Simulated scan of single mutants.
Amino acid sequence: MTVVSVSMPDELLERIDAFADEHGYTGRSEVVREAARNLLGEFEDKQLEDRELMGVITVLFDYQSTDVEQRMMHIRHDYDELVTSNVHNHVGDHYCMELFILEGSMADISTFVGKIRATQDILSIDYSVMPVDRIDPLS
């Protein structure tokens, strides 16, 4: 197995170590490998390929990070054909939340989420993807 060096903040490393201990992992490498596999597999759902999809993406950041808000606006405009709705809200005393509603292919939604994830100073990103061409509402 190849050894890889990765830079990360001390706080994140401490959280990974605590997670490994709490959940019975052999160490941080096992946690990072599993996280990487999960990240890479997120958008590989064969049932969603070649379908029109709706994506709901929620992004949280500190309101004092004005660069983040500007970067969100630029990403939104870069993907104007994909973004059907965008809402900006203030949450608590220090946070902003961006909500994006997307409609498009899995590849397009995946690329959009990747751009958001690559944005520095994002505190949290959550998303869901579902088909909009679903015929049976109970399936």
Rank of each mutant, 00 (worst) to 15 (best):
T2W: 04
S5R: 12
S7M: 13
M8G: 07
P9D: 05
D10F: 14
E11S: 10
L12S: 10
R15S: 13
R15V: 10
F19C: 07
F19T: 05
D21Y: 12
E22V: 05
Y25Q: 03
G27L: 13
S29K: 07
E30A: 08
E30S: 14
E30I: 01
V31L: 13
R33L: 11
R33G: 06
R33E: 15
E34T: 11
E34A: 13
E34V: 03
A35M: 07
A35F: 03
R37W: 05
R37A: 15
R37T: 04
R37E: 10
L39C: 09
L39F: 11
L40K: 09
E42S: 10
E42D: 15
E44Y: 06
D45P: 01
K46M: 04
Q47A: 09
Q47P: 14
L48C: 04
E49Y: 12
E49R: 11
D50S: 11
R51H: 14
E52I: 11
E52Q: 03
M54D: 02
V56Y: 04
V59G: 04
V59N: 03
V59K: 00
F61K: 01
F61M: 00
F61A: 01
F61H: 02
Y63E: 11
Y63A: 08
Y63P: 01
Q64G: 14
Q64W: 05
S65D: 13
S65Y: 08
S65M: 12
D67V: 03
E69M: 14
E69N: 12
E69W: 02
R71W: 13
R71S: 06
M72Y: 00
M72V: 02
M73S: 15
M73N: 08
H74P: 06
H74Y: 13
H74W: 11
R76E: 12
R76H: 13
R76W: 09
R76G: 11
H77F: 08
Y79E: 07
Y79H: 15
D80G: 10
T84K: 13
T84W: 09
T84P: 04
S85W: 10
N86H: 11
H88G: 05
H90E: 06
V91D: 05
G92P: 06
G92L: 15
Y95E: 07
Y95Q: 03
Y95P: 01
C96R: 14
M97K: 10
E98M: 04
F100I: 01
F100W: 11
I101V: 13
I101R: 14
L102T: 04
L102R: 00
L102W: 00
G104C: 03
S105Y: 05
M106S: 07
A107F: 12
A107D: 14
I109Y: 02
I109Q: 03
T111Q: 11
F112G: 02
F112W: 00
V113E: 01
G114Q: 06
K115D: 10
K115M: 09
I116M: 09
I116Q: 01
A118C: 05
A118S: 14
T119Q: 00
Q120R: 12
D121G: 02
D121E: 15
D121C: 07
I122W: 01
S124V: 04
S124L: 08
S124W: 03
I125N: 02
I125H: 01
I125P: 01
D126H: 13
D126E: 11
S128M: 15
S128A: 14
V129N: 00
V129T: 00
M130V: 15
P131S: 15
R134S: 07
D136M: 10
P137D: 11
